[in-house]
């Protein structure tokens, strides 16, 4: 399972991954291990899907226009409506949630005009109203989610 190094990499490198020619070597130096150790540990974390990737995380709405959308769909139609919604490449997350609004998805498009046209198409095709909840403000202060590995 997770070794001490896995846990340290998970908690310490959700941000501030070095922007240097040899970032894995830099991490290795600060942890007192070898570059091979760090690369192996990250490979293991990725192979086991403990991390989805090491990458840059973009502040929303800097590239394209996005919105959260919610739909209230009868339970027996949820799967078929979800399939319709998921087919659109502009939809990148689609969740079922326990609520009257039970279908929640995030859409992104190059501009608002195009986004609105796709949402209208989805409403027409599904027969349900799409409640748009675009981001008005982002209260991001937290520097990474602290993992609790004790239990």
């Amino acid at each position: 399972m997770l070794t001490a190094m896995h846990k340290q990499l998970l908690n310490d490198y959700q941000q501030d991954f070095p922007l240097s020619p040899t970032p894995y070597q830099d991490i290795a130096s600060s942890l007192g291990v070898t570059e091979e150790d760090v690369l192996l540990a990250f490979n293991e974390l990725a192979d086991e899907h403990f991390i989805s990737r090491i990458g840059s995380i973009i502040v929303p709405n800097h590239i394209g226009v996005s919105t959260l959308v919610a739909m209230a769909v009868p339970v027996e139609q949820l799967q078929s409506i979800a399939d319709i919604v998921s087919r659109y490449p502009e939809v990148n997350h689609n969740y079922e949630r326990e609520n009257r609004f039970n279908l929640w998805f995030v859409m992104i498009a190059k501009d608002d005009e195009y986004l609105q046209s796709v949402i209208e198409t989805i409403e027409t095709e599904s027969g349900f109203n799409a409640m748009q909840l675009p981001l008005l403000a982002d209260y991001f202060i937290n520097l990474g989610f602290e993992m609790d590995f004790d239990d």
Binding site: F17, F50, G144
Partner: peptide, 22 residues
């Protein structure tokens, strides 16, 4: 990337944990 981070386009660079798997 440094400039985009300073200007708030890139929020952070790092490992993206899979909460569910963890």
């Amino acid at each position: 990337m440094m400039v985009m981070q300073d200007q708030g386009v890139i929020r952070r660079i790092g490992a993206v944990p899979n909460h569910y798997r963890l």
